[in-house]
């Protein structure tokens, strides 16, 4: 706002502003270039990038869901287990009928059934979380910690702690197919991101979600039905997790009790890196996606460079802490 500045010194200011508002995008591009240089461009070949997209696609659905929840100042720890449960349920209806150890051996299901069932599982958990948080006034951390455990238990009970394999080819193609060089998964992610972007930016609901995260009291005074809106956010997130579960089982061609483990960590880390503030009310869908790709690129790059996966965990933890630290410095509210 300082008018006394000369035109010349405005350019660095502009660059500085751009850097501070697009930190995550700049970081992502810088990392991409860095990785390209140290691998002589090998990491940026089409095949490698396809692998990256496929690996991150399922997580993207989780990130979109939990990203919306974090914007309301909430959190969802059940994400990974709900995705896992939904993957197991959908897989159980997609096993080939002549596979002896199939859960429903000898039974033939329509191809849409596993898809619907998986999404329904996610939606049910989303609704459950939403009711607990919005109407039960449970802190989101505790409510979703509980449902995380419930989902884990159900997953083990339902699968009888064994792997559900031998999925039908016409089911697997949902995730494994390509349209030219473009994996189907990328198309789904782009569609989902666009839908959520429209929801968040072009509907009353989206505006209400930002308002609730920004100041829930003021939102109520402004006539927003805070409880109903909060519940819907958790429900939408659950639907996204359900889709993630379906896509995951189709991509892997199986599901087992370990499916989905720790995915909540990755998704929360991704959106945090992407600038979704835990102080609430701040964040964009673009940011969520960039954060996801950044974290994906770090994993992918370290694997590509042959870094031991145990060390990758250390790096990931450090990045999460750093991202939240930066976020809190930027958005922490003054008491």
């Amino acid at each position: 706002m300082d008018n006394t500045k000369t035109a010349g010194s405005n350019i660095p200011v502009k660059i500085k502003n751009f850097l501070s508002t697009h930190t995550s995008l700049v970081t992502f591009i810088a990392m991409l270039i860095f990785l390209g240089i140290i691998t002589n461009g090998n990491a940026l070949k089409l095949g490698s990038l396809q692998n990256l997209v496929v690996a991150e696609a399922v997580r993207a659905f989780g990130a979109l869901g939990v990203g919306m929840i974090i914007i309301t100042r909430g959190i969802d720890l059940s994400l990974g287990q709900v995705i896992g449960l939904s993957a197991c349920v959908s897989a159980s209806f997609a096993q080939t009928a002549d596979y002896g150890s199939a859960l429903y051996a000898g039974q033939e299901f329509a191809i849409w059934l596993p898809v619907i069932a998986g999404i329904a599982v996610g939606a049910a958990f989303g609704l459950f979380n939403g009711v607990l948080v919005a109407y039960g006034n449970l802190p989101p951390f505790i409510a979703t910690l509980g449902s995380m455990s419930i989902a884990t238990g159900l997953k083990l009970i339902y699968t009888r702690a064994s792997t559900l394999g031998s999925l039908k080819n016409e089911y697997k193609i949902i995730s494994q197919g390509f349209m030219g060089p473009i994996p189907y998964l990328l198309i789904y992610v782009v569609i989902a991101a666009i839908v959520i972007w429209v929801l968040m930016n072009h509907t009353k609901q989206g505006k209400s979600i930002y308002a609730i995260g920004g100041n829930a009291q003021a939102a109520k005074v402004s006539g927003i039905n805070v409880k109903a809106q909060l519940m819907r956010v958790y429900l939408y997130a659950g639907i996204l997790y359900g889709m993630a579960g379906v896509l995951m089982s189709a991509r892997l061609g199986l599901a087992n009790p370990l499916t989905g483990n720790n995915m909540e960590l990755d998704a929360i880390a991704a959106v945090t890196v992407g600038g979704i503030s835990h102080a609430g009310g701040v964040g964009t869908v673009g940011g969520m996606m960039i954060g996801l790709m950044t974290l994906g690129l770090i994993n992918f790059g370290m694997t590509f460079l042959g870094v031991n996966s145990y060390y990758q965990l250390l790096v990931k933890g450090g990045i999460i802490i750093l991202a939240v630290y930066m976020d809190m410095r930027k958005h922490a509210r003054k008491e």
Binding site: V198, H202, T203, K204, K207, S208, Y210, A211, G214, N215, Q217, A218, A219, K220, V221, S222, G223, I224, G281, V282, H331, R333
Partner: peptide
């Protein structure tokens, strides 16, 4: 405490209770 949404824009702060009046047929704003 109960008035402003500190981080949201003037536009959002102004329009939030009247968004119903700005829905198009498609429900988009």
């Amino acid at each position: 405490g109960t008035g402003i949404f500190p981080l949201l824009s003037i536009l959002d702060n102004t329009s939030i209770p009247s968004l119903d009046d700005y829905k198009k047929k498609s429900h988009l704003l």
